[in-house]
């Protein structure tokens, strides 16, 4: 897993079937990357639904939330609509898990991303990272603490 201080590898993934998002598109803002195993599994829904409710706390720190899993854009679309999510979900779908692997958070055995959080600063460096046990929803206190640390700098 990539650690604090590392430059966050840039990537380009589909957010919708016809729209791609690059990490570097957000340069100048803080970014929260939330890798998670899969859409629809109850634990994930909880975690993404929770972040959805907390977007205003993240935007106070000028931070963009981005979810990433190996699900396809069509699956993400349906999940996003069902849960009324107001942030992009990226499809690490083809080649499968490539971005998750670059960040060191791919589970080869099950073929899914692990449940991992990265806070990336405005210069594109990883400011904080956290790997959660797959069954445990990590909440958002760690993310907020990391964003507050960034503001102190």
């Amino acid at each position: 897993m990539l650690e604090k201080g590392t430059v966050a590898p840039d990537f380009e993934l589909n957010a919708t079937p016809d729209q791609k998002i690059k990490l570097s598109d957000f340069k100048g803002r803080n970014i929260i990357l939330a890798f998670y195993p899969a859409d629809w599994s109850p634990v994930c829904g909880d975690q993404m639904a929770l972040y959805n409710e907390m977007l205003k706390y993240f935007s106070k720190h000028d931070a963009q939330m981005i979810g990433i899993s190996v699900d396809s854009t069509w699956c993400h679309n349906a999940f996003q609509q069902d849960r009324k999510l107001h942030f992009p979900l990226l499809a690490d779908f083809e080649p499968k898990g490539e971005v998750s692997k670059a960040y060191g958070v791919y589970d080869d055995e099950v073929g899914e991303s692990k449940r991992a959080l990265f806070v990336i600063d405005k210069d594109g460096k990883i400011a904080w990272s956290y790997l959660s046990p797959t069954a445990v929803n990590p909440g958002a206190d760690g993310i907020l603490n990391a964003l507050e640390e960034l503001e102190k700098k």
């Binding site: 909880d46 706390y57 929803n137 909440g139 958002a140 206190d141």
Partner: peptide
């Protein structure tokens, strides 16, 4: 209350 929950690590 909600914000205190976020800070306290409420995860559901």
């Amino acid at each position: 209350d909600f914000e205190s929950g976020v800070r306290s690590g409420v995860n559901g």
